[in-house]
Write a protein that binds this DNA or RNA. Structure first.
Lengths: 123, 123
DNA sequence: TAAGTTATTCTACATTTGTAGAAACACATT
DNA sequence: AATGTGTTTCTACAAATGTAGAATAACTTA
C-alpha cells in the first residue's frame, strides 16, 4: 500500500487518534487545515482503498485505521532500502550512522537499543 | 526535492552511472524498459527541475545528476522520521531494530557499524 | 416543525504523473 | 545526396492527486 501525501497526512492524524469522528479529525489536523470537504474526500478515498474503516453509532461514524502505522512504515522503509541501497541493510545503517545524520548522543542511544535487542534475542 | 517514482527510477540509474549518454541510460534501465521516448520525457522533466544537467560534446549530451543521492535520500529519511516518529531518532532506531526488520546477523553488523562510528568520533 | 449545524456524497476541475507516438534534428553510411 | 539511426522536443492523453463547492441527509435546537 502506497498512499499519496495528502492521504498519508490523514492517516497520520488517524493513527494518532486511533479512532475518531469527523470533527475530531478536523480538529486534530495541522494548520493550515484544508477545507472540510477536502478531508471528507480523502477519507472517502481511503475507505475505498480499505485503509480506513468505521463503526456506526446510530448514524454517526467513528473512523479507524485499517492498516497499522508500523506495517505501513515498515513497507515504505523496505522499499527505500531496496532502491537506494540495493537491499543492503548494512549499507543503509552505515549511511544512517555516518554523516550528520545522528548526533553523538543519538548514536549512543542507538547502540544501547541495538545492544538490548541483541540481548533480547539471545534468549 | 521530492521526485515521483518514475523520475526517481531514472535518477537511480543516473546515480549509478554517475554520467551517461542517452543510450547508456536506456541500456542500464531495469526490465521492463519503458519506451525510449518515455525515458526522454522523464529526462526532460528532471532537467526542468534542475535535478539533472548535461555537458555537450559537440551535439551530443552527457547527462549527470545535479542532486546527490545521499542528500536526496537523507531528506527523504528526515521527512519519514519526522512524520512517523515525531522526530525521534530513538523511536526510529527502536522500530528499525526490533520486529522482523533485521536478521540476527544484520543486527550484529549494525552494532559493529555503530561501534566503529562511535569510536571514530571519540577522537 | 422550521432553521441551523454537521457529516457525507457528488461533481468538478486544475495539476501532476506515467506513458508514448510523431516530428524534427543531427550524424553516419551507402 | 538519400537513407537509416539515435536524440531530443512536442504533443497527447489517461490516470492519479489535491482541492473544494453544491447537494443531500441527518441531527440539534429554538
Amino acid at each position: 500500500m502506497n498512499l499519496p501525501k495528502s492521504e498519508e497526512q490523514l492517516m497520520l492524524v488517524l493513527w494518532k487518534l486511533k479512532k475518531a469522528f469527523m470533527k475530531d479529525i478536523v480538529e486534530a489536523y495541522p494548520e493550515p487545515k484544508p477545507a472540510n470537504t477536502t478531508i471528507a474526500t480523502l477519507l472517502k478515498r481511503l475507505q475505498d482503498k480499505k485503509a480506513v474503516g468505521f463503526t456506526k453509532y446510530g448514524s454517526v461514524r467513528e473512523y479507524h485505521p485499517l492498516i497499522a502505522k508500523d506495517d505501513y512504515f515498515s513497507s515504505q522503509m523496505s522499499g527505500a532500502i531496496k532502491n537506494f541501497f540495493n537491499d543492503s541493510v548494512a549499507q543503509f545503517a552505515s549511511f544512517f550512522t555516518s554523516k550528520d545524520n545522528l548526533t553523538d548522543e543519538q548514536l549512543e542511544e542507538l547502540r544501547k537499543i541495538v545492544d538490548e535487542q541483541i540481548k533480547a534475542r539471545k534468549k
